[in-house]
Amino acid sequence: MSGPSLAHRVSALAENLVEVQDLAVEFGLDGGRRLRAVDGVSFAIRRGETLGLVGESGCGKSTLGRAVTQLIRPSRGSVRFAGQEIAGLGHRQMRPVRRRVQMVFQDPYASLNPRMTIGQTLNESLSVHALARGSARRPRIVDLLESVGLDEAAIDRYPHEFSGGQRQRVGIARALAVEPEFIVADEPISALDVSIQAQTINLMMDLQRRHALTYLFIAHDLAVVRHISDRVAVMYLGKIVEIAERRELYAAPQHPYTEALLSAVPVPDPRVEARRRRIVLEGDVPSPVEPPSGCRFRTRCWKAIDTCAREEPPLIERSPGHWSACHLASPGGETRPT
C-alpha cells in the first residue's frame, strides 16, 4: 500500500496543514449493501496552497471534502489537521477545530437560513466561537461584508434579496467570519453564471493571499481548477487516480482517465476545437456499489490490458510529486505503448 507513504513524503518538502491517510467513507444501503463513496484515499495539503479536487458526479469528491472536515464520519483512516488527529473526534472536541476549518458550499441559498438576515447569520458564526464581542461585533460584520465586496446595507437583508453571486459572497463571508486557516470549497461557482464566476474566483484568490488561507477546491470544471490550484488531484469511483503539480498534471497527465477528462473539455476557441482529436470515452461510470475488479477505470479505458482486471493499480510516485495509479504508467511516468 503506497497510500500512507504519500502524505509522509510530501511532508518532507513543506509544512502540511492537512494530512489524509487511507480515508474511507461507507454508506449503508437497503439490503445490507455498502456503498464505498471514498475508498482508501491519501493526500496532503501544504499550508497556503490550493489543492484542486476534480472528478465527475458520483466520484466521491464531495464526500471526501465533507469527511476531511468531519461533517461526515469516515469509516476508516486518519485526518490530521495541523498535526492533530481529528477523525472520530466528538462534537465538543471538534469545536476548536471547527473555527479553523470552514466550508463553502455550491448552493448558497440552501446553506443560508432564509429566515435570518445576513447580519444575523454572520453574528451567529461569531457568537458560536465567542469572537468580536460587544461593541466590536457590528464593525466586524461590516468588515466581513466589505472584504467580500458587499456593502453595509446587506446586514438587514435576507438571502432571497440577493442574486446567486451575492449569496455566494455571503457564504464566503460566513466562512471567513471565524478567521479559519483552511477552507473546503465544494463546487463554489458551479451554480453561477459565467460572468459572475470570474468575480467569485478572483475574490477567493484575493482572500487567500490576504489571509494566508489554505484551500481544498472541489470542482468538476477543469479549466477553473487549473486556474485556481497549485496542485490537482483527480478522483474516479472513490479513488484518487492521479495527483500532481498543476502544470505537470495538465501538460503531462499519466492516467488515461485524466487524459480523457482533459481532452473532453471544450475550449472556447474555434481554431483549437477544429484541430483537436478528442478521446471520447465509451459508456458511463460504473456503479460504486459494485465497482469493477482491479482498476476501476478499466471498463472505459481504451488502453486496458488483462492485468487491469486482476490487480488494482497502486498510487505510485512516478516522478517527483507526480503520483498516478495505472498499470501502464512506467516508473518514469511514460505511458507504455499498447
Binding site: 464566476q197 470570474a198 468575480q199 477543469l222 482533459l262 475550449v267 472556447p268
Partner: peptide
C-alpha cells in the same frame, strides 16, 4: 475574458464583468 481556459498556462487575473 471572464472564463479560464484549460489550454492556458498563464494564470493571470480573470477579468469579470
Amino acid at each position: 475574458d471572464s472564463i479560464p481556459r484549460i489550454d492556458s498556462e498563464v494564470r493571470e487575473r480573470l477579468v469579470p464583468i
